[in-house]
Nucleic acid binder design. Sequence first.
DNA 1: TAGATTGTTAATCGATTAACAATC
DNA 2: TAGATTGTTAATCGATTAACAATC
Lengths: 206, 206
Amino acid sequence: MPKNDRLTSDIVISRLPQYLRTLRQFRGSKKTIISKELADILGYTAAQVRKDLSQFGEFGKQGKGYNIEYLIEQLEEILQINRVWKMILIGFGNVGHGILNYYRTPDAGFEIVSVFDIDPELIGREVHGVPIRPMNEAKTFIQDHHIRIALLAVPGSEAQNVANQLIDYGIKGILTYAAQNIVVPEGVQIQYIDPISSLQRITYYL
Amino acid sequence: MPKNDRLTSDIVISRLPQYLRTLRQFRGSKKTIISKELADILGYTAAQVRKDLSQFGEFGKQGKGYNIEYLIEQLEEILQINRVWKMILIGFGNVGHGILNYYRTPDAGFEIVSVFDIDPELIGREVHGVPIRPMNEAKTFIQDHHIRIALLAVPGSEAQNVANQLIDYGIKGILTYAAQNIVVPEGVQIQYIDPISSLQRITYYL
DNA sequence: TAGATTGTTAATCGATTAACAATC
DNA sequence: TAGATTGTTAATCGATTAACAATC
């Protein structure tokens, strides 16, 4: 039972997946890890690691550190990834195609169960076992399968419109690959994958 | 001449690409934009937009706002993207394939000029006009073509090793798609594209 | 000129870190 | 038990925001 009361800031949440990823690397090779180790690998301070984790419970043991298996379990529960999330992918152009490929390794607990597009050429096809359906079936599909998460790979000019539709159909989380800001109502989560912005951050320093 | 003396924090830099992207959307439709508009679209405050921009110069006019074309130019200069950056892509599995597709639209000032892989099946092929070369030619290629940026799409277990090599060969900026932390020396920039972490941030709130 | 909005200062807010008592 | 490391408090640091004089 996390003691998080939504007082936890988003910046703390954004570090949890990093802790989890690092812990998984050590899984098997040893049993416990101390805050300083975790911190050094990720470039944080030991105090910050302990502070972040302490927001959700007391997972460590004084003098010993954190049990890796146990902390992984706890983080998976906090992040709600101790199950498989079924997602839909909207748009099957260059980007969408790449995304579908990316998620073929389903180890991560996220699975694309259907693609949607408006191109009649694509509709009805099946790629890597995932069917491509027409956009106008999205509403029914989302509702019938209780889909909460959508991956957006449509042209930037369409992104906001499509997002609005999806939210209307019941989608609560959107991961968009369109380099376009999307405004979402309270209670809907949006995350951006924007390699160009990342590259621009790199070139600034070169 | 930016008055930035490396006192500018990375968090400010990370917002510049967002400002730029938003400005480009408005390009054509109007001549000027005020800080409040820019802020509202991105979910910031007007004060923050003005403060961020003021770190680099006085780009606005009291009573008028910012000339969009001019501000775009300035941001492009600050971010050093008023030219085309030639990049190499390391690894041509599922992920690498998707990445190559992604950068086929070369409007953004970033271009993949060569792919490198170790798979003999792939080496020698050419995809979308981009040749796939053996890893052992990377050093010469990087040095001959003065490549500064590499996209990394190798298995997580290889990421650190390959990054070390690339840095040794002269690479100064790495955008990695591997879900693995990479330690780089001072002066080398690293950015992570990690959709799984982004999804985990989403599921936390669901 | 009057109105609007910038650039910047000072105040506030929040996040990070240092330090240490608690305890494994 | 002695040594190590946690969880947490208090101090510090840095980022955001409010407010306003300067000025287009």
